[in-house]
C-alpha cells in the first residue's frame, strides 16, 4: 500500500511539476518583427482649395523603402477631382544648407481604379538635428499647375528586414538597394523583393527655381542582377547558410525579385554582389562558404543585415 501511495504522490508530482516550457514559436516570430499592412494618412496638405492626402504604411515614414499614395480632393466638397501629372520630390536639407534627395518616383502613377496616385521614396536618413525632410508636390488640374510643400518626419526603421544599403559602384555611380519585402520573413522560402536605384548625376547646373527636379533624379536600374548568399554571421553559427536561394532579377514592376531561405530564426546577413547588364561586378565580394564555428562570418562588402 505504501508503494501505491508513494506512486500516486509521484504521479501528482509529475502532473503538477513544472518542466521546461515549450517555445511558443508563433508568438516569438510575431514579437520580433513589427509588420505594417495598413495604409494610413501621414500628412494632409490644403493648397489652392485642394486637399492632398499623403498615405504611408502605418501613417509613418521610415528610413528605407516607403510606398506612398496620394489622394487629391476638393477641400470644400471632399470629392475627387480630375488631376493629372502629379509629381513627388522629397528633399533633405542638411544643417550645412546642402540639399539632397533620395530614390523616389517623381512622376506618380495614376491608379484610377483605386483612386490614388502611387509612388515611393527610399529615405536614406531619418529626420534629426542634422537635417530635415520636405516633400515637394505638384499636380495639374484643368491645365493649371499647383504646387505644395510639406515638412515631414522620417523615423528610423525598426524592422531590420526593411533595411537598405547605399554605396558607390565600380562605375563611380551612386547606388541604393532597399528591401521591400518580406517585412516579416518566415522559416522556409521567402520571396525577397528589393528596389535597386541609381542617382543620375546632373549634367546642368541647377536652375534658379527650387527645387530643380533634374538635380535630384534617380532611376530604377534595369536588367541588373543581384546575387544573393544569405548567412548567419554570429560566431556560434559558423557561417551557416541555406539551400535553394535564387538571385534577384527584375520583374515588370521594376523591382528585383529573388528567393531567400531562412533555415531558422536569428540574425542573418544577406550578402550581395551587384552585376550590371553586362555582368560586370559593380559592388560586392564572394564570401567564404566554409563552415567555421567560433569565427564571425565574413560579410560581402555589399550586404544588408536582417533579424528574424
Amino acid at each position: 500500500m505504501k508503494e501505491i501511495l508513494f506512486f500516486l504522490t509521484t504521479v501528482c508530482f509529475v502532473v503538477l511539476s513544472c518542466t521546461k516550457e515549450k517555445t511558443d514559436y508563433e508568438a516569438e516570430i510575431d514579437t520580433v518583427v513589427p509588420e505594417y499592412k495598413e495604409f494610413k494618412e501621414a500628412y494632409a496638405i490644403n493648397s489652392d482649395g485642394y486637399k492632398i492626402s499623403i498615405e504611408a504604411l502605418n501613417g509613418t515614414f521610415y528610413t528605407g523603402y516607403n510606398e506612398v499614395r496620394l489622394e487629391i480632393t476638393d477641400s470644400q466638397t471632399n470629392e475627387k477631382v480630375n488631376v493629372s501629372a502629379v509629381t513627388f520630390l522629397p528633399i533633405r536639407t542638411n544643417v550645412d544648407k546642402r540639399n539632397v534627395s533620395c530614390p523616389h518616383r517623381y512622376d506618380l502613377i495614376d491608379k484610377p481604379d483605386d483612386g490614388y496616385f502611387s509612388g515611393y521614396a527610399v529615405f536614406t536618413d531619418r529626420s534629426d538635428a542634422d537635417g530635415s525632410w520636405e516633400l515637394y508636390i505638384s499636380f495639374t488640374i484643368a491645365d493649371q499647375i499647383h504646387t505644395a510643400k510639406q515638412d515631414i518626419s522620417v523615423h528610423e526603421q525598426a524592422n531590420k528586414n526593411m533595411n537598405m544599403a547605399m554605396f558607390e559602384g565600380k562605375d563611380d555611380e551612386q547606388y541604393f538597394i532597399a528591401l521591400v519585402s518580406p517585412q516579416k520573413p518566415k522559416v522556409g522560402e521567402n520571396e525577397l523583393v528589393a528596389g535597386i536605384y541609381r542617382f543620375n548625376k546632373p549634367n546642368n547646373p541647377p536652375s534658379s527655381d527650387f527645387p530643380d527636379a533634374s538635380q535630384f533624379s534617380y532611376t530604377e536600374v534595369s536588367d541588373y542582377t543581384l546575387q544573393l548568399d544569405p548567412r548567419m554571421p554570429e560566431p556560434s553559427m559558423g557561417n551557416h547558410s541555406s539551400p535553394n536561394n535564387k538571385d534577384l532579377t527584375q520583374r515588370s514592376d521594376g523591382l528585383y525579385h529573388g528567393m531567400v531561405n531562412y533555415t531558422m530564426t536569428g540574425n542573418w546577413t544577406l550578402n550581395f554582389i551587384l552585376l550590371n547588364q553586362q555582368g560586370q561586378i559593380l559592388r560586392g565580394t564572394l564570401v567564404p562558404t566554409d563552415f567555421t564555428p567560433g569565427v564571425e562570418g565574413v560579410k560581402s562588402e555589399l550586404h544588408i543585415d536582417i533579424l528574424f
Partner: peptide
C-alpha cells in the same frame, strides 16, 4: 545566455 542566437525545430 540571455541572448538567443537562433531557434529551430
Amino acid at each position: 545566455r540571455s541572448k538567443k542566437t537562433m531557434f529551430a525545430y
